[in-house]
Design a binder for these strands. Structure first.
Lengths: 335, 335
DNA sequence: CGGCAAAATGAAAATTGTTTCATTTTCCGT
DNA sequence: ACGGAAAATGAAACAATTTTCATTTTGCCG
């Protein structure tokens, strides 16, 4: 009933532990006939090395942690797919951590990351403070931060894969100015705060450049339903702005549905664009414009960066910062 | 630069390893003043127990594995949230595994689960064969299978949390019969094969009961786009069935958009219902009917079941089978 | 066939905890 | 203050591997 250990294999094959260990780890210094003998015993007994003991002996768990908020997870499974595929390719295990209000705080996650002795961590920029980063940094756990640009960090073993939405949003607004449109509204959001900041910065700077101030913020609603109700009310008293910038699909759809039910036409009376693309946008009538942010690739690149950092112990020659380009996807809701 | 171990703490606090271990584990047999002294040293040195060494010493990792296909993950992040929340409550770590065609096969996942010595596993019914279950079962790793009913298994440490769609689908079709409608079409899907089987079985049995045979299957298309194109073509030559049953949102939306563009009215000319609900269904015009499957709860219940199995070593008194009830959500696309 | 280098193997220490069992200390009643 | 029981502590074994260093075996050359 006991699990089979390296001892059992050694005894059965009449060799020492060291030799068994060597054949497990493909060490080249073992003679071909003994390798085969040991291998045969391993298979016959169904021996599987204990990764826990290996981890202890090697001070290396071949495991990386991924931490993201549950909200983000629900919205962004594709980035997780990218992370997982690359982790699998390099045979890393992944410990998965989520933060959610009430149940699991960042503090606890960090605690368990440290105790688990994972080799590295992937962490999403949002709801993750400077202090928390410093804690992990003290333990010299290589990490890559995904999502948006980390400012002013100069830590040696921290990588960063991000999209910069600021410029692209700035340029979009500028283009509307060129076409004589400056009646723009922006829906606040809390899904990804750091990206939201970039968005706001981009829009505001475009306004500043023409000597105006932007402050047409529409207030945040967590769900589609409340958002839709809000806009339904809002459009009773206000004419929609000519261009409406949302952050995620449900907000954009809320504007679309509410506006149309008030008799407005999209895109003739108002245009709608959202930052985060989703597969549902092309299903709407009219289809809704967005930006293409290659989530899967971001995940894949981030994990690849981390594996590189883990392999190069010296950490030379590993690019530690990658900016992903977003591209506008023009559909029927803008022109 | 070296990590602080229990030895360092013991020496600094002038006690034995055993005592330090006892204060870490809240053993009650240590005197209050020495506990405080040790605790103070632990904090001063910033000692964090090494979970890997603990795992080795205890033959227990306080870690559970979750395995699901990437496709399912993209569709069903909520169930993962349920799993994670409960895992966090009981302070279990989670190893996350995905299967994806090409990159990571179930075989490899099982291999790494065994090597990692996790305490238990949560696994989704789909693309997971009887044989594979047997392998895990040989290692006596407690597991709960989520998603749909596991037939004919009688293994001692296997739990099952599932929805049974068969009856509810059967009843739905029956109701349409009562209203004189028997012109029904069903869209094939491969997202969750076992659930799809239930769906088919339910529909077919309803037909059989009235002495007819059901075989109006519409073919499977992986994406919204191909699905939409398919229905656009299809409706050129065929009149839509009176009731169209899809499996997931994108298929239902494809039917909706294609049908309307051919001048059909929903729900007057055709009704549409989909098995899996999604938050986008209420955003459509008309809104689309579905079934409420409480994903979050399913995840939470599954993980709770597993934690119970892990705590009751005897495994008595743990309910090992839970059937979740689905409920129809009637929106505008049916009546 | 002896000698020697190279290759293969093994013994033992190291990794960081937990736990059992023996020993020491404390506390209590007298 | 003493005996004995109870409580606290410590020494050592144990968990399953890797790795270093010493030892043995092999192979080759003269």
């Amino acid at each position: 009933m006991k699990r089979i250990t390296i001892y059992d294999v050694a005894k059965e094959a009449d060799v020492s532990l060291a030799t068994v260990s060597r054949v497990i780890n493909d060490s080249s210094v073992v003679r071909e006939d003994t390798r085969q003998r040991v291998q045969e015993v391993i298979e016959r007994l169904g021996y599987k090395p204990n990764a826990v003991a290996q981890g202890l002996a090697l001070s290396k768990t071949t495991t990386v942690s991924i931490v993201m908020s549950e909200k983000l997870l629900a919205y962004n499974a594709k980035i997780l797919n990218g992370l997982m595929d690359v982790a699998n390719i390099y045979h890393y295990n992944v410990m998965f951590h989520t933060t959610s209000k009430g149940i699991s705080k960042m503090q606890d996650v960090i605690e368990s990351i440290i105790k688990s002795r994972v080799d590295g961590v992937i962490i999403f920029n949002d709801n993750f403070s400077e202090d928390e980063m410093d804690v992990l940094n003290e333990y010299k756990i290589p990490m890559v931060i995904v999502g948006s640009k980390v400012e002013g960090q100069n830590h040696d073993h921290v990588g960063n894969v991000y999209v910069d939405m600021e410029k692209i949003c700035h340029d979009m607004v500028q283009k509307y100015f060129e076409n004589g449109i400056d009646d723009i509204a922006l829906v606040e959001d809390k899904l990804n705060l750091s990206m939201m900041r970039q968005l706001k910065a981009g829009v505001e700077s475009a306004y500043q450049e023409v000597g105006k101030e932007f402050n047409n913020y529409l207030s945040y609603n967590d769900t589609y339903k409340t958002s839709y109700q809000y806009f339904s009310e809002y459009f009773k008293e206000h004419k929609p702005a000519k261009l409406n910038i949302a952050f995620r699909d449900s907000q954009a759809i809320a504007i679309l549905n509410a506006a149309r039910e008030h008799g407005y036409r999209v895109p003739e009376d108002l245009e709608i664009v959202t930052i985060l693309d989703s597969k549902y946008l092309p299903m709407m009538r009219p289809t809704i414009s967005a930006f293409n942010i290659p989530d899967y690739d971001m995940g894949a690149l981030a994990m690849r960066m981390l594996t590189k950092m883990l392999m190069n112990n010296d950490e030379k020659g590993v690019q530690k910062e990658i900016e992903i380009q977003a591209a506008p996807i023009v559909r029927e809701s803008t022109r």
